[in-house]
Computed example of a mutant assay.
Amino acid sequence: MTGHDSPVLRVAGRPVGRYVTRPELPARLSPRPCLHPVTTLAGTVVTELTPADHPHHLGVGVAVPDVEGYNFWGGRTFVRGKGPTELGNHGAQRHLAFQLREPGAFVADLRWMAAGAELLRERRTVAANELTGTAWALDFAFALTNTTSRPLSLGSPATSGRPGAAYGGFFWRARKEASAPEVFTAAADGEAAVHGARADWVALTGGASANPGAGGGAGWTLVLAGATDATRHDPWFVRTAEYPGVGSCLAHDARLPIPPGETVVRRIVTVVADGRLTRDEAAALVRKAVTP
């Protein structure tokens, strides 16, 4: 994997994430700019890029499996009545230009292209902020504008008939370890309870375990929080048993329409911490990260 013009995010002088603007990937993986590797302040990597289980998972970024029939997620497309199907319908996100580049932040414009035409124009705003000596926050906002002359809509496998598969939006592919990570919100524990829930925040924690022989390296925790009313309305997509990943669901119960010239805006703030945080510790760091 190589990239061109890939800035590095830094917190307190330490590199914590690289933004790959032009990943060299086959079309079926829906190439798109992404953050990888992302690390804790102690240097523990908390992302994966093109893992063997899902080669189309690319670190941290925005991916949508259905933009008016075009696949911007990668891999197979879920077809009603057929199931996951290999189609030649893959789109690609193309880095256009940086509007801002600083050691701890950048603003980038992207074109969402399919079949030789632009469907969406994205303004992506990303910042890395120090919270404590062992935690920092990745503030990631994106605005998707329909640049065509016709209505567009965003969908998911769930809106095509696959229950429980409403993925599409901001997505964080976490590191896979010998043991599955734990997941919790302020009120629920475990994948079954958290997946599909609407909650202010969701935490994924792995690595060092209190259970002897459980495996895993240094402890780490990710706490994803919706930072706007619209984002907090989106349910969470969560996987821990099959693979570790968390994201938001732009099209959970129904397709999300974007009329010509209109814009959909979402903002996720993720606490990236060393160690396995408790519920109270996660909540406290989220408040610090999201509070203006």
Results as ranks from 00 to 15, higher is better:
S149W: 08
R18S: 13
E102I: 06
P292M: 03
R267C: 10
Y19D: 01
E281Y: 00
T291M: 04
F237T: 01
V238H: 01
E182N: 13
L9K: 09
V183D: 01
V264P: 09
E118Y: 02
V60E: 15
T44C: 04
P37E: 03
A137I: 10
G168R: 11
L138T: 00
P51T: 14
A117V: 13
T231H: 01
A180I: 06
V67R: 05
E177C: 05
S248W: 07
V202S: 07
V126E: 00
G88N: 14
V38W: 01
G215D: 09
I268N: 12
R10V: 10
V202N: 06
V38H: 00
F171A: 05
G17F: 03
Q93D: 07
G17S: 12
V38P: 00
D229G: 12
A141M: 14
L9G: 10
E102G: 06
G133K: 07
A141G: 14
G206E: 03
G245S: 14
T21W: 04
A284I: 06
T240F: 02
E130T: 00
E242A: 14
T147Q: 13
L277E: 06
F106N: 12
Y70H: 15
A97Y: 02
V64A: 02
C34I: 04
D109W: 12
S153L: 08
R162I: 04
I258V: 14
S179M: 03
R101G: 06
P51K: 02
E177P: 07
F237E: 00
